[in-house]
Amino acid sequence: MGELKQGRGLGDWLNERVRLSSLVDFLRQKEVPRQKHSFWYIFGGLAFFFFSIQVLTGVLLVIYYSPRPDSAYESVRFIGSQVPFGWLIRSLHGWSANLLIGVVLIHFFSVFFLKAYRRPREMMWFSGVLLLFLMLGFAFTGFLLPWDTKAYFATKIGTEIPRTIPLIGDWMVSILRGGEYIAEESLKRLFALHVVILPLLTSALILFHLILNQVHASSIPLRIEARQPGIPFYPNYLFRDAISWLVGLTLLLSLALLWPLQLGLKADPFASAPVGIRPEWYFLTLFETLRLVPAQILGVASEVWVNLAVMVVTGGIFLVPILDRKASRQQASPIFTAIGVAACLYMVTAIALAYLTT
């Protein structure tokens, strides 16, 4: 049992009881490698910052939101027009979601190109990839909640995609929608996923990801010499994080204030889908791929092939540390770099095409 000293102030009083100084000592000893690609480390922390913004604004929104088709739209309109700063909180939530996915993608590709997934950091990659898909899950489940025309039809089209998967397609659509059509059950189901299930899974995975980061420290790329001494996490690296968070906050506030989130007309399930409807930018690669492929390939509907491709690509992304055995042996693996460059080019081209042609 530690010796208790006579406290001099509130800080000492608190420190005697919760031992904050031991946490500070731990963070002072933790070092971030100093090398020429250290800049890319910042995006993990920035993703955490935007996730925190999502939690904070999401909690505020859920106070007024009503997850029922007859009142969801009205509750969102109420948030935007009657709740003090409600329009700003909703705009911050919407724009922060976009920035979060953007930052997570930059983090994903920087880890991929620097081969930071190589042994012994495979589990960090697996948990990171799961977190990326959870972020896309958040975006997908949150999109229906305002219950306006775009939200309704985008979710209707999106939940239709798995239908062509052999044997389990219909079942998957039914699970996503809570029935055959987008209705009350779908809204309740996606709402529960968005505010309870996905946040719990994400929080647990972020904790796991961070613990692994403590265990293995940040990766140093192959053939790169780290300079000594490293960057002490506290206070030196925390200042770098703080600058990136302030820059992120500036960007977020500018977007939310200059282009507040809009609310379309209330969804009418009996109306036909509006012309030129397209999903958010992070789903445009899939959207454009579905538009580009011919209706049938080898007598099989194109959706089946695209679904198959999505499953293969997802599995491939997940298994990168296993497939790239050269990187784990500390050797260069230019094939994986080339695959990454091709994937980036394809994504950018598909997104540009979707914006230019719809």
Partner: peptide, 30 residues
């Protein structure tokens, strides 16, 4: 409003940056 916010955040970034430079010098990593 955006201009005021921009100035406030720019000052905050500058303060954090100069403090970071100080602690980097102390740690011998500048």
């Amino acid at each position: 409003m955006l201009v005021i916010l921009g100035v406030v955040i720019a000052v905050m970034i500058a303060l954090v940056y100069f403090r970071m430079k100080e602690v980097d010098e102390d740690a011998g990593i500048s």
